[in-house]
Design a protein around this nucleic acid. Structure first.
Length: 239
DNA sequence: GCGACAG
DNA sequence: ATCTTGTCGC
C-alpha cells in the first residue's frame, strides 16, 4: 500500500484540505522552551500498533508516563479502536491522533511533556505527528523518528560513531531537526522539536532516556513494546 | 515510467 | 506499520 494507492482512496480535495489545516496549525509552532528543565517531572512516551480483522483496521495506542528523574514508569494506559484514515507519508497525524487523544483522556496524571514515535518540526510542512499532537494536547512535545524521510531533497550527514554526537538537518537555511547517534555502533535517530521546546533541550531529554538496551529512548521503546503486547492480547481475545 | 515514502 | 527464521556478532 504505497502512497499512490493510498492517495487514490482519498479525494484530492480532501488532501488539499489537510494541507490547508497543516499550514494553519503551522503558525502555532514554537521551537523554544515554555518550561524549565529543572521543573520537568512527568514525561510520556506514545506509540501505536496496528492490525486488521475482517478488512477492518484497528490500532492500539499505549502511553507510558515516566518520572523524569527516576526514569520509572508511574502510569500506563492503552486505548483500542478502529483506524479509519490510511497511512500517507506527511499526514501521519490524521491517522494516529484520534487514538492518541482517546488514550490521553484515560490518563490520571498530566504529563509535562510527550515524546512521539515520528517527526515533529522535521517535516515537509513542519507538521509531523509530534507537532500536531502538541497543538491538540497543549503540552510540549518531542519527535523521535527511526528513519529519515527526505525533505526538499536535503539529505542528512551521518554523525560520528560515538555516543551523543549529532548533525543538524538544515532546510532552506533553517534547522529542522537532527540526526542523533544515541549510542556507539547504532544507526542514528532523528530528533526534532514537536512544540514548545528547543532542539538542544529535546536532544538532552532524549539522551537522558537512552539506556544500554536500545538506541531509542525508553519512553518510546517501552510504549512500542506495550503496543505489541496489547495487540497480541487483542488478537487472542478476538478468537 | 521510476523511485521515494515518518508510521 | 506489518508479514516472519535463521543467523551473524558481541
Amino acid at each position: 500500500m504505497q502512497k499512490n494507492s493510498a492517495v487514490k482512496q482519498m479525494d484530492n480535495k480532501v488532501e488539499e484540505k489537510l494541507n490547508v489545516i497543516q499550514h494553519q496549525l503551522r503558525k502555532k509552532i514554537h521551537c523554544e522552551n515554555n518550561f524549565s528543565l529543572d521543573e520537568l517531572k512527568l514525561v510520556a512516551g506514545v506509540d501505536i500498533a496496528y492490525w486488521s480483522d475482517n478488512e477492518v483496521d484497528y490500532g492500539v495506542c499505549c502511553i507510558q508516563v515516566f518520572d523524569y528523574l527516576t526514569k520509572k514508569v508511574i502510569e500506563e494506559v492503552e486505548y483500542v479502536g478502529k483506524v479509519e484514515f490510511p497511512y500517507i507519508s506527511g499526514y501521519l497525524a490524521f491517522r494516529e491522533l484520534p487514538l492518541i487523544v482517546k488514550a490521553v483522556q484515560k490518563l490520571k496524571n498530566t504529563p509535562d511533556l510527550y515524546m512521539f514515535d515520528g517527526n515533529g518540526y522535521l517535516h515537509i510542512r513542519n507538521m509531523g505527528i509530534a507537532t500536531h499532537a502538541s497543538i491538540e494536547l497543549g503540552k510540549p512535545t518531542i519527535g523521535v523518528a527511526k528513519t529519515y524521510s527526505k525533505i526538499k531533497n536535503v539529505n542528512f550527514t551521518m554523525p560520528p560513531n560515538s555516543k551523543g554526537t549529532f548533525t543538524d538537518i538544515v532546510v532552506d537555511g533553517e534547522v529542522y531537526g537532527r540526526a542523533l547517534r544515541t549510542r556507539v555502533d547504532v544507526k542514528p535517530i532523528f530528533v526534532s522539536c514537536g512544540n514548545w521546546i528547543d532542539l538542544n533541550t529535546a536532544t538532552q531529554i532524549t539522551m537522558h532516556f537512552v539506556e544500554e538496551d536500545s538506541r531509542l529512548p525508553i519512553t518510546i521503546r517501552y510504549a512500542d513494546l506495550a503496543t505489541h503486547e496489547a495487540r497480541k492480547y487483542q488478537k487472542l481475545m478476538n478468537k
